[in-house]
């Protein structure tokens, strides 16, 4: 049996996972999100990466960004490296895509602040 804490929401449910052959028996979750979390966490854990990128603008040296969806956990540091080598040259708004399909994942890097448009 394995225990893990669901990180989907602040409830932080303690999940119990029994592996029975290929079947996973999961308990402890307050909602079905916990079920889905435990399944991916057991097979291919996924995370959202939130960081910043350097900009060409003096008043806003860095702009907050994130992946628009979760990416495989083991790719976190490759994504960080890619973000570190990127310099934003144009003023973009919140939600705009800065990098598509980062590091070969399905995720785009989007701006999470509107500061450059204000």
């Amino acid at each position: 049996m394995k225990e893990m804490v669901c990180i989907v929401c602040p409830n932080g449910c303690l999940l119990h996972i029994d592996t029975d052959g290929n079947d996973l028996k999961i308990s402890g979750q307050k909602c079905k999100k916990g079920l889905a979390f435990a399944k991916t966490e057991m097979t291919a854990p996924m995370r959202t990466v939130c960081s910043t990128v350097k900009t060409a603008f003096k008043d806003v040296p860095v702009l907050p960004v994130r992946t628009d969806r979760e990416i495989p956990k083991e790719k976190i540091f490759s994504v960080m490296a890619a973000l570190n080598s990127f310099v934003l040259q144009e003023r973009c708004g919140i939600g705009e895509v800065l990098i598509e399909k980062i590091c070969g994942t399905d995720a785009d890097i989007i701006a999470t602040s509107n500061i450059l448009k204000e």
Binding site: P10, S51, T52, R66, I94, T112, S113, N114
Partner: peptide, 22 residues
């Protein structure tokens, strides 16, 4: 607070701080 996890109760989404504020 550029990390995500804001707004799950209110919007049912995981937003970052600046997105929530926006």
């Amino acid at each position: 607070c550029i990390h995500d996890g804001f707004g799950l109760v209110r919007f049912g989404e995981k937003l970052t701080g600046p997105e929530y504020a926006q």
